[in-house]
Design a protein around this nucleic acid. Structure first.
Lengths: 236, 236
DNA sequence: GAGTGGTCTAGACCACCGA
DNA sequence: CGGTGGTCTAGACCACTCC
């Protein structure tokens, strides 16, 4: 027991749909049937279904019911906050992370402006290698008031696991800005850039529950390997 | 009267925040105060606040209250389904649309695969000019079973206005795929591409309320002018 | 402790869909 | 018409924050 009936039901169905156990076009049980099945009230059922709807798993149609959408093929990084480790897990391709820097630095004006914080910041530079090619360069900056210590061991694995499970930080929301910019020397040095003149730059601002900005990340992708998928609802 | 108290309250506050009338860090009235103020129940208040939270306008903090986020500076195309006309309205720059094609064609295999539909499809090709340069090329494909007639007048203005207000179509959700690809002759012909070898391609699949796909759009952007902003929540 | 948001309930009325 | 989802109500208990 304890806690979040609607989240449990949401995950139940999200898993069933993602795994293909529930095929597209399938009709879900009606809200009253789900009330019975789980022994809960209708508003709680509806919270679960609305979550599924918002995340692109189902479509609710008034007077008819809830139907499974075709999510299986393309939606893995359904917009949002997917870390490299999670991403490669779903991709199933050989990949690794190469850590170039993990150090406390004095931020330049540019970084200071983004991460409005103290006199020093953690800077982490890592390349992401997939199928033998370094195609992503991640430059992370952390507020040391929130992340006091980082090591090569942590940054080589998943920083997010560390932040969420060790430091118990609760990430609340993030803003991404995607643009294309000219590649710089650093890109050529740390990535297998071939002769592309541009890179896709994803600037990521990550906030905690109390709305404090604690991380700024610049993720630089080789043009030909970049892909971003976004699912958006209009009214629902 | 009639209908959707929570949507009204949502729009009230969304407007106030977007216009800067409510500054970042401001504390909103508590849920019980809003209940009083509008004479409604708490769950209805919460629906409005949750909408604001999901769309990046506010941050709710347990035990403290709801606080306005700094949305003003960057969030205009807060991910999602923004049309060119809406976008330029907020940008306030001189812009226009050039219609190159508005015709019924036999779809090639590629399009047929995307828009699984009949023997013919509407094809619309338009360039978007901002500050004197054609920097976006939009290729739209519509299912003629749903959109029976299109004219140059319609496509030159806003197709979405026509679809929503004239045809009363209810757009429900869309999936975007962003990637970077080599530019083709058509790009150079219809855009002021300079000598960029690549374009940013946004493939857009638009669905109606009953989950039928009715439009496929390929939006090709000049590298240097492309920008995409995404706001995403992690837990609530 | 008082005040806040997070979850949940058991009802109600409505608009829509299909037969 | 019965079944569906969409909105709304008036309560309840909890966990959290701040004093």
């Amino acid at each position: 027991m304890r806690e979040n009936i609607y989240l449990t039901i949401y995950r139940d169905y999200a898993d069933k749909i993602q795994s293909g156990q529930l095929k597209p076009q399938t009709k879900l049980p009606s809200e009253s049937e789900l009330m019975e099945e789980y022994g809960i009230s209708r508003e709680t059922v509806r919270k679960a279904l609305n979550l599924l709807s918002q995340n692109g798993y189902i479509q609710k149609i008034k007077g008819k019911g809830s139907f499974v959408l075709d999510v299986g093929r393309l939606n893995f990084p359904v917009s949002g906050l997917v870390s490299f480790k999670e991403l490669t897990k779903t991709l199933g391709k050989p990949s690794r992370t190469i850590v170039y820097e993990t150090e406390l630095i004095k931020p330049d004006h540019y970084i200071k402006q983004h991460l409005q914080c103290s006199e020093t910041v953690w800077k982490v530079v890592r390349a992401r290698e997939i199928e033998g090619e370094r195609i992503i360069l991640d430059k992370d900056y952390f507020d040391p008031n929130i992340v006091p210590m980082l090591t090569k061991e942590i940054t080589g694995d998943s920083i997010y696991d560390y932040l969420e499970h060790e430091l118990k930080l609760k990430i609340s929301f993030a803003k991404k800005e995607i643009s294309v910019e000219q590649s710089i020397d650093e890109d050529r040095k740390y990535m297998d850039l071939h002769d592309y003149l541009h890179v896709v730059v994803v600037r990521n601002y990550v906030y905690l529950e109390d709305a404090t900005l604690f991380q700024y990340t610049e993720s630089r992708h080789r043009l030909d390997k970049f892909r971003f998928i976004d699912f958006a609802r209009r009214g629902n």
